[in-house]
Amino acid sequence: LQLFIKTLTGKTSTVEMEPSDTIENLKAKIQDKEGIPPDQQRLIFAGKQLEDGRTLSDYNIQKESTLHLVL
């Protein structure tokens, strides 16, 4: 599924993920695209901070969801 990652600067990146992927996997993919180390990334979806060990489906993240990346 395609996700949009929006940064505080207003920049939006697109990443392709599976519902079974963990937040950790997602942060690794963001690191590949943006060069931001996972330990500096905080991802927010629906007002919640996402935890590394959980999966996208745990948070009911659907295709074309927008996640907010806070550093």
Rank of each mutant, 00 (worst) to 15 (best):
K29G: 03
K27N: 00
L3W: 02
E18Q: 13
G35S: 05
L43W: 06
V70E: 10
L69A: 02
L3K: 00
I23E: 00
T12M: 12
V15T: 02
R54I: 05
L26A: 01
L56Y: 01
N60R: 07
E16V: 12
L69W: 02
T22I: 04
P38A: 15
T66H: 13
F4K: 07
L26C: 01
K33T: 11
N60C: 05
F4S: 06
T12F: 11
E34F: 15
T22P: 04
D52T: 05
L71K: 08
P38N: 05
E16I: 13
I30F: 03
K63M: 13
H68F: 15
T9P: 05
F4P: 02
A46Q: 15
H68W: 15
L3R: 00
G35Y: 03
F45I: 04
K63L: 06
Q62P: 10
I44C: 10
G53K: 11
L50F: 01
Q40F: 09
Q62H: 10
P37M: 06
D32K: 13
T22R: 07
K63F: 10
D21I: 03
A28V: 11
L71T: 09
D58P: 01
T7V: 09
I61N: 02
P38E: 07
V70G: 05
V70N: 06
S13W: 15
G47A: 04
T55L: 11
L71P: 09
E34I: 15
T22H: 04
M17D: 00
K27L: 03
I23M: 03
T55M: 10
E64I: 05
I44F: 15
D58I: 03
E64S: 11
I23D: 00
P38V: 15
N25K: 14
K6Q: 11
K27M: 05
G53C: 06
M17G: 05
A46I: 06
I5P: 01
L8N: 13
Q49C: 10
D52I: 06
Q31K: 09
G53T: 09
T66L: 11
S65P: 03
P37C: 05
A28E: 09
T12E: 06
G53Y: 11
L50T: 02
T22E: 02
T14Q: 10
D58G: 04
Q41E: 01
L1E: 03
K27Y: 03
